[in-house]
Design a protein around this nucleic acid. Structure first.
Length: 465
RNA sequence: GCUUCCUUAGCUCAGUCGGUUAGAGCAUCUGACUGUUAAUCAGGGGGUCCUAGGUUCAAGUCCUAGAGGGAGCGCCA
């Protein structure tokens, strides 16, 4: 008999048909006449109830049916006599594929702390919570590809290994085949990379943006979606050393259209979750965050605030005048601290904010300079609880202005001639943004720690599994 | 990287002012129960109190250092 997934079984009527299912035992309970096995195969957060009549199965048969064991069950699908489910399987045979010794199996049918589950990340996908999070994670990835594909973007693959030293987005992990305990040095005592694999210093990418711009200057609209690596010693619930980033880059758009894209894209993803992950969201809503679904709905129903930095500073200073205390100062020219972002998003407006036109000194070299010569066309999306979920900008397309900024900042561009060529040959106005995939997942799942929305998190001092 | 908190049974946690044999719930094991819903009820077993020093008649408790983890901040997505 062909095995069917539990998600499919639960949609059938209990008309007495024969079924075959496989899955892992979540719990077993019962009395001396009947045993109830909650079985889950990952296809849905819901379990199928398998009923084992003890007239048909001996204690010996069921002794190995413990929490965590893997079973293959055949039986008859019937209307449930109990209250918790509509259908259940009256078992004819139970084959134990793999046992799980209850004395050593780390997962129990009772709840566990998320911190504990991080220590057993190889098994935590078997819990309700991580099953839900990981199914949502998949759906969000599909939503992202779907959005861009529907809107005529091309999925552009940027390299993970890069030899350019000035992407400027953070500390990089070096890539080498050299023996780090016996490095060849040149006459000045510097490391000699000439005999290394790439013949020069190489590292894992911190951003695909610069290469993404090359794609946009040919294909018009592209997006990247891949792993990104930052060697920053960041110990927070919002940072990973290895995370996934989405970076669309679009030719011929201005700031307003960029903000439209950011807002439309985020709403599309959230709507996708509400439409396609109902059971999983309901579980997370019930177990972790009673306001989750309501908050997701509110995001797709509201217009994001579009707030120039200068006005944001004015609002913050007004708040300070009225007695609001902040740890850090917020004068024009300062980078906003988390507390300032949170005040604006959570207290003052109560909805997502797209902050624009930042002082050029606090933003990257490639952002387009405004006519005031003071501000650049950054467009960051700030979300409640998460902070900066998107960092975007219109790019400076004028070669002379871009070079002037590069020189002013002493950025070493000798390996970046290819990037500058975009401005030398057929330069075009263009814009784009970077979205941290896991930060989107924090928002969509309501999880509090970014280590709980990726299967195997990498953080400082932690690369287990 | 800075600040701060935590580490006691398989899991979650209590443990008073430093004082006798370190406790609870759940899990596990045994038994009871004719359909349970994280079943319930009764009973049993289960401890390097994170590690190493120190103070003290006496340390789970106080001190120092280290390890691991959480949170806040910085950096950022």
């Amino acid at each position: 008999m062909k095995r069917i997934e539990i998600k499919e079984v639960l949609a059938l009527s209990g008309d007495g048909r024969a079924v075959s299912v496989c899955g892992w035992v979540r719990s077993r309970r019962g009395n001396k006449n009947v045993s109830f096995i909650a079985l889950n195969d990952g296809s849905t957060i819901k379990n199928i109830q398998v009923v084992a009549d003890l007239a048909k199965f001996s204690d010996e048969d069921l002794r190995q049916v413990t929490t965590g064991a893997c079973l293959h069950v055949t039986g008859t699908l019937v209307e449930s006599m109990g209250a918790g489910q509509t259908v259940e399987i009256q078992a004819d045979s139970i084959e134990v594929y793999g046992t799980a010794d209850p004395l050593t199996y780390p997962l129990q049918k009772k709840g566990h702390s998320l911190e504990y589950l991080r220590e057993i990340a190889h098994l935590r996908p078997r819990t309700n919570t991580f099953g839900a999070v990981l199914r949502i994670r998949h759906n969000m990835a599909i939503a992202i590809h779907s959005y861009f594909h529907e809107h005529g973007y091309f999925y552009f693959h940027t390299p993970l290994i890069t030899a350019s030293d000035c992407e400027g987005a953070g500390q990089m992990f070096q890539v080498t085949t050299k023996n780090l305990y016996n490095l060849k040095k040149d006459k000045d005592g510097q490391i000699d990379y000439s005999d290394d694999f790439f013949g020069k210093m190489a590292a894992l990418t911190v951003s695909g943006q610069l290469e993404g711009e090359l794609g946009a200057m040919a294909l018009g609209k592209i997006y990247t979606f891949g792993p990104t690596f930052r060697a920053e010693n960041s110990n927070t619930p919002r940072h990973l050393a290895e995370f996934w980033m989405i970076e669309p880059e679009v030719a011929f758009i201005q700031k307003e259209e960029l903000m439209d894209l950011e807002e439309d894209f985020l709403k599309y993803c959230v709507r996708w979750a509400l439409d396609n992950c109902k059971d999983d969201l309901q579980f997370l809503n019930d177990m972790f965050d009673k306001g989750l679904i309501e908050r997701l709905r509110s995001v797709i129903d509201t217009d994001f605030v579009r707030l120039p930095y200068t006005e944001g500073i004015a609002i913050l200073q007004e708040a300070v005048k009225k007695g609001r205390k902040f740890e850090f100062p917020c004068n024009w020219g300062d980078d906003l601290a988390s507390e300032h972002e949170r005040y604006l998003v959570e207290e003052h407006f109560g909805k997502p904010v797209i902050m624009t036109d930042y002082p050029k000194e606090i933003k990257a070299f490639y952002m387009k300079l405004n006519e005031d010569n003071q501000t650049v066309q950054g467009t960051d999306v700030l979300f409640p609880a998460i902070g900066e979920i998107i960092g975007g900008s219109v790019r400076e397309e004028n070669y002379d202005k871009l070079m002037a900024e590069i020189e002013r900042r002493n950025i070493p561009m000798k390996d970046m001639w290819w990037y500058l060529d975009t401005r030398r040959y057929g330069s075009a106005p263009h814009a784009g943004f970077g979205l941290g995939f896991e930060r989107l997942l924090l928002f969509v799942t309501g999880m509090q720690n970014i280590r709980d929305v990726i299967p195997f998190p990498r953080t400082p001092k932690s690369a287990e599994f």
